[in-house]
Design a protein around this nucleic acid. Structure first.
Length: 114
DNA sequence: ACGTTGACGTCAG
DNA sequence: TCTGACGCCAACG
């Protein structure tokens, strides 16, 4: 199971109408400091990954971090289409952020330090 | 094996 | 509140 596969698995679990941050995804896949790499995975998404709701991943402040041309507007449009309120500063994580049940992440295996 | 590269997060001003 | 510097670490050449 590669890092990329774990990331996509997690993102696929995010319910419609909710959002999570890159940092949260990184935490759940077992690499708490790899938030940046999560972005890297989403950047490389292809059409074949159409079942991955990448638009539900935002930064720690609820802002849209996408820089790909058109992708930012697309992300906002997709989120609004599923009921998420997106303002100038992004979304309100306290309201739209998703708090997952820990038992729902079997692949999340935080290594026990000695 | 090794250097570079960032859809990020955090902290000092 | 807003900015810039820096650490982070999986891919990729």
């Amino acid at each position: 199971m590669t890092f990329r596969e774990r990331v996509l698995n997690v993102v696929r679990q995010v319910p419609r109408g909710r959002v999570v941050s890159y940092g949260q995804v990184a935490l759940w896949v077992g690499s708490p400091r790899a938030a940046r790499q999560v972005g890297g995975v989403l950047f490389g998404l292809r059409d074949a990954d159409g079942d991955v709701p990448w638009q539900r991943v935002v930064n720690a402040r609820g802002g849209i971090s996408t820089f790909k041309v058109g992708a930012g507007e697309l992300q906002v449009a997709l989120l609004r289409a599923e009921g998420v309120e997106v303002g100038e500063a992004g979304v309100d994580l306290a309201r739209w952020g998703w708090d997952p049940p820990p038992e729902a992440w079997p692949w999340t295996v935080p290594p026990a330090p000695p």
